[in-house]
Amino acid sequence: MRKVVTLIQLREGTKAKVISFALGRGGGFGARFGRGMGQAFARRLQEMGIIPGSTIEVIRNTPVGPVEVSVMGTHLAIGRSIASRIYVEKL
């Protein structure tokens, strides 16, 4: 069985396949777990290359800052709250 985790749980250097997003209402973040990132944000992520099915590599992931991933040859910084709403499968 494949193992799905959130982006925030991946260590630096791990490659992963994007699976889906926690959508839900609004664009809450921070302590308000359980709420999704919202359609608009999911769309933006996809336009930046974080599309279900695409492969990403975690470049940086420390508790103090955003998660940096390499996708389509560029680096994206993704805030921790958003990263915790992106489901991925470790490769």
């Binding site: 664009g27 809450g28 944000f41 933006r44 940096e68 910084a77 993704i78 805030g79 958003i82």
Partner: peptide, 10 residues
């Protein structure tokens, strides 16, 4: 209003 998260190309 609800705040939004960061997504930025480095």
């Amino acid at each position: 209003g609800t705040p939004s998260g960061l997504i930025m190309e480095m």
